[in-house]
Design a protein around this nucleic acid. Structure first.
Lengths: 346, 346
DNA sequence: CTGTTAGCGCATTCAT
DNA sequence: ATGAATGCGCTAACAG
């Protein structure tokens, strides 16, 4: 179905010139008389010539492939990062060689060898978003290395992270903007850096407004629905008045909402709720019910990928943490969206 | 940080033999005396030799890279398929060049040229799961082409799809096994082939048990929450008795559950509900609330990828639709899971 | 301006 | 059993 591929030599033969001339002209390099240039272009066109990338790569010592080292590729939040990066690389005609380290150090070592053998032009390390730092592997490579959805423990490495602080701040400002003044925060333990960032952001917004956090500090547990339920009850039992809750993730938010309604509070009339992660949006089926913060993970992956692609082409390559802005998605849980057909109480 | 790469020639020099001998020995081909073999292996070891893949590829005319053509890469359901495929290829040391066609025909044409120039060893086309067939691009290639999450309109092509029929059947059998006998079905229009497959599967399970579908046929609309709400009301107003509802997706299931509870029905006591997609699981946070069917999309992508990888190595390569089994995830909405801490009504 | 000559690193006949 | 020679397809440095 596909005849023998046509090579530079074929084009040269037809155009009646040398191979190297064809190479130059086809790449717009050096000078060539208009006459021969036209002949060459015509010949290339007629033969439907396409340079064999393998030949180019060998000659140029590059591979046009990027190594990707994922700590946990099939992870829910890793997937969008990976997808974003992968397609962004594709747009630059860069292929990717993906290895899943399963968080295993020995696997990483073996993988690094393979990546070098493949002469990857760059490396993208994708973390699992947990606040803990990632072990830098950059010094093992002579090509640019970029970290995404995790922060390298070597400050010389460029790392890309979603902006948890901004998330907390956006949540806070949104609630304050709606006139809420007694805001509580239910989230995971602050030892989890991403929980801490969100809490700090919220606190910043409250400080600016001169308001305290209800209970003085976040209700800290873990990321589960179970914790969300327990924490919501604890909040109710505390007797403190509150008119809003910012939850560390959407799972907790859903749990809190269930408990509050069960207890007779109306959402959003009595209590407004903001979540984080936009998982229903991630599921492609945002239903407009829950106000939440989207960390824009696909974008995160894409931005990191483009940065790496640029670095490979000689662009700037600075260490430090680059932060990707997140977005507030309005929903009915803060009354930010008009009651729609999506609401059961029509 | 990384000295000049060591080549076959370097090893040959150290071992005091010719390049071609080293090449053979290192790849276990042909015969060589034990003496020289040892010397060569020792030299390679000492120099930490790793063959430059680019050289191998050029010489062998292969690229160890797979082209991936996605109709809609960032799509919710495409992501797991892509991730599964990508990491499966990685396990075989195959890199992937991903292009997102955005469902645009002209983009596809341009892309095909690029893929050929890169001398891809195979092509994986990823659809968007909508029942409609995908336009085959296989005849443009001389390498194996496999279709995933979509079915090629050319029966000679191998396509991999989740098993919607099985999904409906599993849902039906699960409900029947729980003693439910009056089962309704709320889903999208049957013109959507994936909606039809699920409906057919459910019908098969009911037929086997000699039971009719409540209302005689599915309540058919679309995949949205709004439709779920309307359909649930319609079901209630019909006056028909029912003790279970199989919903075409989880969004509809959530909507139906809300409406039923609003109307005073208890879930699962009065009505059991089964969804489809396992989106909360996809979100990494399955909360055990909703019984649903997981289409195993990551696995789908991985299986298709391995099939393609095998085909490239000369394995069998048959056309036709290969089906990936789905899995029922028990939850509280059918009482299949003991009431846990996840339940609000503790 | 254009052609010649060398590689890039490896695999693969074909001699020896 | 081993080595010399050739080619994969392209780029690049140097001549003419």
């Amino acid at each position: 179905m596909e005849r023998k591929a046509v090579s530079l030599r074929d084009v040269a033969a037809v155009a009646g010139v040398s191979v190297s001339t064809v190479s130059k002209v086809l790449r717009g390099q050096g000078k060539a008389s208009d006459a021969t240039r036209k002949r060459i272009l015509a010949a290339a066109e007629r033969l439907d010539f396409q340079p064999n990338a393998l030949g180019q790569f060998l000659a140029q010592g590059r591979s046009a492939t990027i190594g990707i080292l994922a700590e946990n590729a099939p992870g829910t939040f890793t997937m969008p990062v990976l997808t974003g990066a992968t397609t962004a690389f594709g747009e630059r005609d860069l292929s990717v060689l993906v290895y899943d380290s399963h968080l295993d150090r020995t696997v990483v070592a073996a993988t690094v060898r393979k990546l070098k053998a493949r002469k990857v032009d760059g490396l993208l390390v994708i973390g699992d978003g947990s606040g803990s730092d990632m072990h830098s592997v950059s010094e093992g490579f002579s090509v640019p290395v970029v970290y995404a959805y995790g922060i390298s423990d070597d400050a010389h490495d460029p790392s890309f992270m979603h902006d948890g602080f901004l998330a907390g701040r956006l949540a806070g400002e949104h609630l304050l903007g709606l006139g809420r003044t007694r805001i509580a925060h239910i989230t995971a333990a602050p030892s989890d850096l991403s929980a801490k960032a969100r809490a700090d952001g919220l606190r910043a917004a409250l400080d600016e407004a001169g308001l305290p956090l209800v209970l003085g500090q976040p209700l800290s547990g873990d990321w589960t629905r179970e914790w969300g339920i327990r924490a919501a009850r604890r909040l109710l039992e505390s007797g403190e008045r509150f008119d809003a809750v910012f939850c560390g993730n959407d799972t907790i938010a859903a749990a809190v909402q269930d408990v509050l309604r069960e207890s007779g509070r109306r959402v959003p009339e009595d209590v407004a709720i903001v979540g984080m992660d936009n998982i229903t949006g991630l599921s492609g089926q945002h239903d407009g019910l829950l106000t939440t913060i989207d960390p824009n993970l696909t974008e995160l992956g894409a931005v990191a990928a483009r940065y790496l692609a640029d670095a490979i082409e000689g662009g700037e390559y600075e260490g430090g943490v680059h932060t990707i802005p997140c977005t507030l998605i309005p929903g009915e849980s803060t009354g930010a969206l008009p009651r729609s057909a999506g609401s059961v109480a029509a």
